[in-house]
C-alpha cells in the first residue's frame, strides 16, 4: 500500500493544495516569532524563536523538499547531519561556559 502511494506521488508530484497549506502554516509561524520577540519573555525568547525556526525547517524539509517521500537512506543522512550539528553546538557551548 505504501509502495503504491509512493509511486503515485512520484508521478503526480505533491498536491498544490498541500503546498499552499504548508505556506500558510509557515507564514503563521513567522508572525508568531515576531510577536513573541515583541512581547519579550527574556532569555526564553531566543529559545522559543529558535524552536519555531526548527519547526519551520521541518515543514520545509519534509514537504517542500519532499523528504517525507524519499527513501530511508536520505532520511537517516539528514537526521545524522542535524545530530552532528547539535553535538558541535553543545560541545562548543560546554567549552565556552566551563573554560
Amino acid at each position: 500500500m505504501s509502495n503504491k502511494n509512493a509511486h503515485a506521488v512520484e508521478h503526480s508530484g505533491t498536491d498544490y493544495m498541500l503546498l499552499g497549506k504548508i505556506l500558510v502554516l509557515l507564514m503563521f509561524f513567522t508572525f508568531a516569532t515576531i510577536t513573541i520577540t515583541e512581547l519579550d519573555f527574556g532569555t526564553l525568547t531566543l529559545t522559543v524563536a529558535l524552536l519555531i525556526a526548527g519547526v519551520k525547517s521541518y515543514f520545509v524539509i519534509a514537504y517542500f523538499m519532499h523528504l517525507k517521500h524519499e527513501g530511508l537512506l536520505l532520511k537517516i543522512l539528514v537526521i545524522s547531519v542535524f545530530i552532528l550539528y547539535i553535538l558541535i553546538v553543545l560541545i562548543t557551548l560546554i567549552d565556552y561556559y566551563y573554560r
Partner: peptide, 14 residues
C-alpha cells in the same frame, strides 16, 4: 532554510 534562522537571529533580538 538558512534565512529561516538568519531572520530571528539577526533581526529579532530582545
Amino acid at each position: 532554510l538558512i534565512w529561516i534562522f538568519l531572520f530571528p537571529l539577526l533581526y529579532l533580538i530582545s
